[in-house]
Amino acid sequence: MKLEKIIKILDAEVCCGTVRNDWDIAMVGASDLMSDVLTFIQPDALLLTGLTNPQVVRTADVAEVKVICFIRGKKPTEETIKLAYDKEIVLFKTQFSMFKACGLLYRAGLADCLQK
């Protein structure tokens, strides 16, 4: 699914980065636990999280995740945004809760990272 469509579904606002049309997202991982994220996240998946510190970007970077969406309108810190620019990671935020965001994306056909 194109990132633009995901942003529309989540009624999200881009915090940093350029929304590229050539990126296709097929899977989503959602967690506030970074070690958890490293366990299941797939490269190029979308990460949904409630944490906004720079560690989220570092975690995404080592796991080859290019897009992070913060839930419940949480704003990433300045350090987080700076690091995301540096690591070429797109950040956006949605007002929806984790449950609703996951539900909407699942209904739209996106897969779970653990789905074989």
Binding site: L33, M34, D36, V37, T39, N53, Q55, V56
Partner: peptide, 15 residues
């Protein structure tokens, strides 16, 4: 609070 310390780290390294 930083999103770590859930007792997964070493398992992750092993995996």
């Amino acid at each position: 609070e930083l999103g770590f310390g859930a007792g997964i780290g070493l398992n992750n390294i092993q995996r």
